[in-house]
Amino acid sequence: METSGVSNPVTAVLLNFRGYDTLLEMAVLLVALLGVWSLGSAAVYRRSNPEPVLLSLVGVLVPMLLLMAGYLLWVGADAPGGAFQAGSVLAAAGILMLLACKRPPVQLLGWSLRLVLVLGLGAFIAVGVSLLSASGMFLQYPPGLAGALILFIEAAATLSIGVTLAALFLGGRLDPDA
């Protein structure tokens, strides 16, 4: 426990002792999104006229949700919290913003969205592979660096989880002509 780099036992289990589970879970999220995207474009996501109540609520809630996601991510090292909690709060902010959009945000498409989607899994694998080449063990953190590496992976995973869940909410690919 002392060598895990974090003092919250659940985070230690998730990111250190059973890192493989979390790594594959990020892959499961991506595969689910691929499955949803392969079913077609988000045709059900129609153009809407958001109510003024929703718009002002979004203006108040989204900054608070972003702040809360950052707090949950940081506090995950030694209290309940972490990447998944922060990611789902981030997704809630994203869904609120999607609901307040008049039309699908097609300008968000392209490589930047895909890059954020694979960021979490990519950072996890990159850390694992670099540790494999340095010490010969996949995802075996050196005790001095464990805390920083876990925070790095968690920050990347939070972004990816939030964006993936918000993309799943749309229920399909966002096509430029949709």
Partner: peptide, 8 residues
């Protein structure tokens, strides 16, 4: 994520 896929 499985629920989202099932709903789609």
């Amino acid at each position: 994520s499985a629920t989202a896929l099932a709903l789609a």
